[in-house]
Amino acid sequence: MVICVTLNGTPREFPAPLTFSQLVDELALGGRRIAVERNGEIVPRSRFPEARLHDGDRIEVVVAVGGG
């Protein structure tokens, strides 16, 4: 089974089931300081191992960058 999500504004397909931990690994973001939002709601890092992505989710993955 495949799910389609919008990841940082771009449509992406992933094999399901997919947890947020697996997503992080898939994107090679393991060990990086990130924050994730699903459909406008924070997904706490503590929930990454259990929480699964759903078809149609709008996912935002953010980092800290230089700024004033």
């Binding site: 994107l27 973001l29 300081r33 960058v65 700024g67």
Partner: peptide
């Protein structure tokens, strides 16, 4: 020090040092 919050560049940041 102030920082901005932005979308990560999926697939482009791997291996690069991060600001923090």
């Amino acid at each position: 020090v102030t920082v901005a919050i932005r979308r990560t560049n999926i697939g482009q940041d791997a291996g690069q040092p991060s600001l923090l």
